[in-house]
Simulated assay, not measured.
Amino acid sequence: MAAKTQKKKTVKRKRRSGTMQARGVKRRERITSAAKELLLKKNLEDISYNEIAETAKVPAGSAYHFFPNVNSIYAAIAMEFLQRYVSAIAAPANKDFHTWQDVIDKQIEQGAKLFQEDPAAMKIIIGGKTPPEIKHWDRENDRRIAEMTEQDIKRYFQLPEIPRANKVFFYYVEIVDLIFSLSVLEHGTIAPHMVHEAQVAGKSYLSNYIPNILSKA
C-alpha cells in the first residue's frame, strides 16, 4: 500500500514538474516575442528590460528567472535564428547546379531571405550594434557556415585541395556578412541590389582560390 501511495506521489510530482516546465517555455517565448515586437519599432539600446516584461505581460521579477538582462534576451533570439540559419544552409538544394558560382549565389540569396523574414534577429546580429557576446557566437556560427559552404560545393563539384581552406571560406562568409551589415545600416534591411553585391564580392574572392570551371562530382 505504501509503495502504491509513493508511486502516485511520484507521478503527481512528474506531472507538476512537466506543467511547470511547459509554463516556463511559454513564458520564455512570450518574453522573446515581446522583444522582437519592440525591435520592429526601436533600436536595441532604446529598449529597457521593464518595457520587454510589460509588453510580454510577465512580471519583471519573474522574467529575471529566465533572462538576467536585456542582452540575454537578445542572445536567445540570435541563437534561435542562427540555428535555423545553419540548418537551412546545410540542407541540400532541390536543384542541379551548373557551376560552383551557382551554389554561392543560392547560399547568399537564402541567407538574405532568412534575415529579411526575421527583422528583429537581423537588427541584433548584423544591425551594427551587436552586443560583444553575440558577436562572438556569430563568429563561431560563421565558422560552421564556412565549413558547410566548402562541403556544399563538394556535394556537387570536384573541388581541388585549397591551402588553408578553413580560413578562405571563413573570410568569404565575413565578406558577405559585412555587405549585409552595410545594407542594414544604409537601408534598414538587406536590399536586393546589396544581395547582388554580396554575391559579386563573395564569388570574386573565392575565384582567387577555386578554378572558374569545376567538374561535376
Score class of each variant (00 low, 15 high):
Gln107Arg: 11
Leu185Asn: 04
Gln107Cys: 08
Ile134Tyr: 02
Asp102Leu: 06
Lys7Val: 14
Ile162Asp: 05
Leu39Thr: 02
Ser33Ala: 14
Ile77Phe: 05
Leu178Asp: 11
Gly111Val: 08
Ala78Val: 07
Phe97Trp: 13
Ser204Glu: 12
Pro211Leu: 12
Ala90Asn: 14
Glu45Gly: 00
Met148Ile: 09
Ile124Glu: 02
Asn94Met: 08
His65Ser: 08
Glu54Trp: 01
Pro92Arg: 09
Ala198Val: 02
Asp177Val: 06
Ile134Gly: 03
Lys9Leu: 15
Glu197Pro: 01
Asn94Glu: 15
Ser48Glu: 12
Ala63Gly: 04
Tyr205Glu: 06
Gln101Gly: 09
His196Thr: 10
Gly202Met: 03
Arg15Ser: 14
Lys12Tyr: 09
Ile104Tyr: 07
Ile77Trp: 01
Pro131Ala: 02
Lys216Pro: 10
Lys95Glu: 15
Ser62Ala: 12
Phe97Val: 12
Arg30Glu: 10
Gly24Thr: 10
Glu161Lys: 13
Met194Glu: 01
Tyr172Ser: 11
Asn71Ser: 12
Gly127Glu: 02
Lys154Phe: 11
Lys36Thr: 08
Asn50Gln: 11
Leu206Gly: 01
Gly24Val: 11
Arg27Ser: 13
Met148Thr: 03
Ala53Arg: 04
Lys123Val: 05
Ile31Met: 10
Tyr205Cys: 08
Met1Val: 14
Ala112Gln: 07
Ile179Val: 15
Glu133Val: 03
Asp46Tyr: 00
Ile179Thr: 07
Asn43Leu: 06
Ile145His: 03
Leu182Asp: 05
Ile52Tyr: 04
Phe81Ile: 09
Val176Cys: 07
Asp152Phe: 08
Gly111Tyr: 03
Lys41Pro: 00
Leu214Arg: 10
Pro92Asp: 12
Ile125Tyr: 00
Lys123Gln: 09
Ser183Pro: 07
Lys129Arg: 13
Leu159Tyr: 04
Ala90Asp: 14
Ala91Ile: 01
Arg155Met: 11
Pro131Thr: 05
Met1Cys: 09
Lys8Ala: 14
Pro160Gly: 10
Arg27Asp: 09
Ile210Leu: 07
Asn43Val: 00
Ser204Lys: 12
Ala53Asp: 06
Asp96Lys: 14
Ala75Ser: 13
Ala201Glu: 04
Ala93Asn: 13
Thr19Asp: 15
Ala76Gln: 08
Pro160Phe: 11
Ser72Gln: 13
Ala22Ile: 09
Arg84His: 12
Leu38Lys: 02
